[in-house]
Design a protein around this nucleic acid. Structure first.
Lengths: 258, 258
DNA sequence: CAGTGGTCTAGACCACACT
DNA sequence: GTGTGGTCTAGACCACTGC
């Protein structure tokens, strides 16, 4: 196949261009990525079978297989034997919150159950300084700002501020944020077609100021975990900035190293 | 090959036993794991070529390849095209500290440079309660306890306590801890043949007590990141417990989610 | 049963590193 | 050049799902 359906200028596929050499399966991966990005297959749906894709791209099944393997390793696709390959989604994934690493101290390594969300604020604003930079916007561009408190089992546990690019999330309301049954990122998929694929977090210990302390129902000055997250869609485009403060008196941030 | 060199009882390989069905390449992976564990190939050395291993196990190259792929994905092996496949090591890995996620706030996403180590204490002791449990020891078993401060660019940044099982680390001295040029985990490989393969961390925000504050040169009550780590060798055997307190005033714990 | 992903093989050829 | 890992192919067969 090489590129599109033009006749190859080289003897065959592989080593197709000038630059760093990209194996066939990576090119296929790129094409699949484009289709995902373009919404040809939506979160939760199946993509065509390996055979169909092999025929479409004029490569062997093994080559599309390797491309799909990488996309599955990146958590963009989910393979299910006998059923097909599915576009990953933040909904209906047996882990409630894929990006939330806060877990109860006791009990299994099991993730957190559903939280109660209390929206303190949800308004249009303008991105400035750091926020614009981290979201890949220009200073002054439209943004949406949300402040909320998440409670687990009745205990206010997370206070967080979200910033979203205004164009992609035009029309987001406090009601949507509060009432959607399921993870916020699932709502973003359904309502705005924005799928979060990857995120980076910077974690620090900070002391609660008076307002934060009140909202989280802890003494002022209490140590809190500060978690700053930038979440990205396809192609490394930043789509959300979150600054969270986590109570860690009966929960902890769990991380695996290897 | 199926199992050992006995004649197969089934028509061919695959579907070899009663239980959950383990594909051939996973059995090969298990055999490679055993060899690694037994020290047949030491950290930093190459393992035999894919062809040799294929011959040894009587399978095709593709099958050992898939086994090696998984071990490489687990960071137990490192493949280098044209050169061979190497046993991963904490030494001479271009990342100084593979398990330390603390990075400077400014500058690249680059990891931390070498730290100055100040050993405050290093003594034989006995594991009790939580420590015994987390290390897989019985209460009262021999253990080694170390307390140290790590400084970066002259700033004391990490105060940590280490507990090690006494049998595996018999003879560890404060001098070894202080003077080994390179990561502590590299020293463990060289001096004790213990290779850390995986770790789990529990992270919290805490307030510094008077002693901790003095050692880290911060005001008492300052928020610090508490990082409790259990590190494992092959086969999920716990080999180290670490309780660290990190200053995060000019550094942060960096994490990637996907 | 047919259709999907999963495993295994054998052989050809490519890219990289050393000598 | 030789040897290593890396890619690609084609075909056979296995395991799981659902009709």
């Amino acid at each position: 196949m090489a590129t599109s359906s033009l006749p190859d200028d080289s003897t065959d596929h592989a080593a197709q261009g000038t630059p760093a050499f990209s194996p066939l399966y990576r090119q296929i991966k790129g094409l699949l990525l484009q289709s995902l990005q373009a919404g040809e297959w939506k979160p939760g749906e199946t993509i065509p079978s390996e055979m169909e894709l092999a025929a479409r791209f004029r490569v062997s099944q093994g080559t599309v297989r390797k491309a799909i393997d990488e996309l599955a390793a990146d958590n963009l696709l989910v393979r299910r034997q006998g059923k097909g390959t599915f576009v990953a989604t933040h909904a209906e994934q047996h882990v409630q919150y894929r990006f939330l690493k806060l877990v109860p101290d006791s009990g299994a390594n099991v993730a957190e159950g559903p939280a109660q969300r209390r929206i303190l604020d949800c308004r249009r604003s303008r991105a400035t300084g750091d926020i614009a930079r981290l979201l890949g916007l220009r200073s002054g561009d439209a943004a949406i700002q949300v402040r909320r408190v998440l409670s687990f089992e009745g205990t206010p546990t997370i206070l967080e501020d979200l910033w979203l690019p205004g164009t992609a999330f035009k029309g987001l309301t406090a009601e949507q944020m509060a009432d959607y049954p399921g993870p916020t990122y699932a709502m973003f998929e359904v309502e705005f077609g924005v799928r979060m694929v990857r995120a980076e977090e910077k974690i620090r210990a900070v002391a609660a100021d008076a307002q934060q302390a009140a909202l989280l129902e802890v003494p002022a000055g209490s140590p809190l975990l500060s978690v700053e997250r930038v979440a990205y869609t396809y192609n490394g485009v930043p789509m959300e900035l979150r600054r969270g403060l986590y109570r860690t008196d009966s929960r902890h941030y769990r991380n695996e190293l290897s």
